[in-house]
């Protein structure tokens, strides 16, 4: 076990954190109130994806998503912020199956946001479709409104065994029964990385965030890219302009910030 700090030490840390903005040198203070806001987006290259589902597990570990267990899973009530859609087509032997990893699409014109009667879900200033768990009344209008089924209702309170509690991520709160939860694009990681960068006296770069979310970091095939869509030179911006790019259910006009790159096959 790590060494225990004195209470004074803990309080001191917290006070200093709260006071930090007032004590920082002028340049850094200005940096904290940076005027240019990023717009976070993601690109998933289906040609690289091998369907291993590492992103799914990585997301669940990172975001303290509980295992549903056989019963809830049979009822389709398991929570997967990052899901793996399998789309089989054809008849043996003329078969085709697509494996599509789907996190929240973080739509610019998000149907869920419009449906929420209590403003528990909103698009934050960096483009993330966020959810305030404490404000959610559990009406599930948003889960119905989302054309991608990317919102999950907590039908049961999560059950953590004593041993499971040990590995919960201390950076992410768990959700109680009766609220809707969803992908946050690992915003806690973005915040931590931004703070680190600013303490080094610089802004976040594309290289900082390219593989920042847990799914992107874990992907063995390097299929998931994350970054700032407001920066025309960022890798996500470049990739979203690829001729292979498409969005899920584009025709609905939801304007997802998640772009897919079509699977290609070898041609002579």
């Amino acid at each position: 076990m790590a060494e225990q700090p004195s209470r004074r030490g803990v309080l001191g840390t917290i006070l200093s954190a709260l006071a930090a903005p007032f004590l920082l040198p002028g340049k850094l203070f200005a940096a904290l109130r940076s005027p240019r806001k990023p717009k976070w987006g993601m690109v998933i290259d289906l040609d690289r994806c091998t369907g291993c589902q590492s992103c799914v597990v990585a997301c669940r570990v990172e975001n303290n998503v509980p295992v549903a267990g056989p019963e809830l899973n049979e009822q389709d009530r398991a929570i997967f912020w990052m899901d793996m859609l399998t789309v089989p087509e054809g008849k043996y032997p003329d078969l085709r199956t697509q494996f599509i990893p789907v996190p929240c699409n973080h739509c610019e014109n998000a149907p869920c946001v419009k449906a929420c009667p209590v403003h528990a879900t909103y698009i934050n200033e960096e483009g993330i479709v966020a959810q305030i768990w404490g404000r959610c009344i559990g009406c599930r209008y948003c889960t119905t409104a989302c054309p991608y089924s990317r919102r999950y209702f907590n039908w049961k309170a999560p059950v953590w065994s004593e041993s499971q509690k040990q590995y919960l991520n201390p950076d992410v709160a768990t959700r109680p029964v009766g609220v809707v939860e969803k992908c946050t694009l690992c915003h806690h990681r973005i915040r931590a990385r931004r703070m680190k960068a600013r303490l080094e006296g610089r802004e976040l770069t594309d290289a900082d965030v390219r593989k920042l979310p847990a799914c992107a970091q874990s992907c063995p095939a390097d299929a998931i890219t994350f970054g700032d869509l407001n920066d025309p030179e960022s890798e996500v911006s470049l990739l979203s302009r690829s001729p292979r790019a498409f969005k899920l259910l584009e025709e609905l006009g939801t304007h997802p910030k998640l772009t897919y790159l079509r699977e290609a096959k070898w041609k002579e």
Binding site: M1, A2, C52, Q53, S54, V56, V57, A58, V61, E62, Q166, Y167, L168, N169, P170, K211, A214, Q217, S218, C219, P220, A221, D222
Partner: peptide
């Protein structure tokens, strides 16, 4: 604080170069 809370691939390892499979993640 003495508890393992996250496993990620080592970016330098020539085998996985930062990625990690679902088994490793769990």
């Amino acid at each position: 604080e003495g508890r393992a809370v996250r496993i990620d691939g080592h970016p330098g390892c020539p085998i996985n170069q930062g990625g990690l499979g679902p088994k490793g993640q769990s």
